[in-house]
């Protein structure tokens, strides 16, 4: 069963093609991640799926409803958390929740079980104005407000941007719990490492979808052997590997370099042989499995 079906959707702003012929489907009950940098078109796509923006071309349905003709039905079926905090800053935590519940014709009590785990963390601050909450608390309140009418599907536009790694983990744990309730969750993020928190992902760049699949399938399609290389002089190593005639790509990855080679049958001894002609101490070369950033950068340079 599909929760979202997108067929050849495009959207331009003047000369800028923000979303360029995107097609994909999102299954019911999955966590689906749109992963890409700023300007990839994630927000425009989310705004079209939540009926806040009309596409120039193409069709899409959400929970079986057409995003143009059935916009009213979609609005009561989806929960949407925009990238910018957009609750009422001068209402308290509780007032915001009551407000959103009332707008959707429900009460906090009716769907309390859905927000309970998140709300208990907010409860000590329930009389505080939303504008005075810390970033992490604002995020939790926004999620509660998006859930209060028990939506079938949640759209979360960059919920973890600017959030530290520990709080990001906690947020993803909350999403994992909501998934168990059967809610389809569509998330966008610029943090590539969050791909492993999603069931399936779409890698997005400049309005286009480069790949849609399970992370492990995308990784398995990485076309070359990849090595992690280290030595005493990392900055020099980077330049020397880039100058190597068989180098395909060389990128910094934390404390090592990821090196891919244009030869099909390359071994780490080939690379070591080359580096031994240079002046390096403590060289280490390890064949590794690519990660999501390796794949993203490879797709970007196609």
């Amino acid at each position: 069963m599909n929760s979202v079906i997108i067929e050849n959707i495009s959207k331009s702003y003047g000369d800028v093609l923000a979303v360029d012929d995107v097609s994909l489907t999102i299954e019911k009950g999955e966590i689906f991640g749109f992963i890409g940098p700023d300007g990839a078109g994630k927000t425009s796509l989310f705004r079209m799926l939540t009926t806040l923006l009309i596409p120039d071309k193409g069709n899409a349905t959400v929970e079986g409803f057409d995003i143009v003709k059935d916009y009213k039905k979609i609005r009561s079926a989806v929960g949407y958390m925009p990238g910018r905090f957009s609750l009422y800053q001068d209402l308290t935590v509780e007032e915001n929740l009551h407000f959103f519940a009332a707008v959707f014709g429900t009460t906090i009590q009716e769907n309390y079980n859905l927000i309970k785990d998140i709300y208990v963390m907010l409860e000590p601050f329930k009389n505080r104005k939303a504008g005075k909450l810390s970033g992490g608390m604002k995020q939790k309140l926004a999620l509660c407000c998006a859930l209060i009418h028990k939506p079938k599907i949640l759209f979360l536009d960059e919920p973890t941007t600017g959030v530290d790694p520990v709080s990001r983990n906690e947020f993803w744990d909350m999403l994992g719990n909501l998934r168990k309730e059967g809610i389809t969750i569509v998330v966008s993020t610029p943090y590539m490492d969050e791909a492993n928190k999603c069931d399936r992902i779409a890698l997005m760049q400049k309005g286009k979808i480069m790949e849609t699949d399970y992370l492990k399938n995308i990784i398995s399609r990485f076309p070359r052997k990849l090595f992690a290389v280290k030595s005493d002089g990392m900055f020099v190593l980077l330049n020397e590997l880039r100058e190597y005639q068989f180098a395909n790509s060389v990128f910094s990855f934390g404390d090592s370099l990821h090196y891919s080679d244009s030869r099909e049958n390359v071994t780490k001894d080939n690379i070591l042989e080359y580096l031994n002609t240079k002046n390096h101490g403590n060289i280490s070369i390890e064949e590794i499995e690519p990660n999501i950033e390796d794949c993203f950068m490879d797709l970007m340079s196609k």
């Binding site: 940098p37 600017g162 610029p190 990128f251 993203f296």
Partner: peptide
């Protein structure tokens, strides 16, 4: 202050 937030992985590395 968070100079590379939201930037693609290649640009992030070029920035460094």
């Amino acid at each position: 202050d968070e100079p590379t937030g939201g930037v693609d992985p290649i640009t992030r590395r070029q920035f460094w």
